[in-house]
């Protein structure tokens, strides 16, 4: 199982990336899987045990994030 975090646009991905990095959380940037969207979007893959931490850190900073299991 892999968890991915989706954002409204790439600028939010970049903001989220900075926030998570500052919090010492490791994420992998990857293209949004084609079955979710055919557009050239970026998302993040996070270890399942870190997903709730990541979402909390982002929500504190007002980042809109959606979580998908792939």
């Amino acid at each position: 199982m892999q968890m991915i975090l989706l954002f409204p646009n790439v600028r939010e991905v970049m903001k989220a990336d900075r926030i998570l990095k500052d919090n010492g959380l490791k994420v992998q940037v990857m293209p949004v899987p084609e079955r979710i969207s055919s557009e050239c979007g970026m998302c993040m893959s996070v270890a399942p045990e870190l997903v709730s931490d990541a979402i909390r850190m982002l929500q504190v900073k007002d980042i809109t994030v959606e979580c998908y299991e792939i």
């Binding site: 790439v10 991905v13 970049m14 990336d17 940037v29 990857m30 293209p31």
Partner: peptide, 13 residues
């Protein structure tokens, strides 16, 4: 910053 992000996504792809 965008270029760096794209590069990470490229390697993961």
């Amino acid at each position: 910053e965008l270029g760096a992000l794209l590069m990470r996504a490229f390697l993961n792809s």
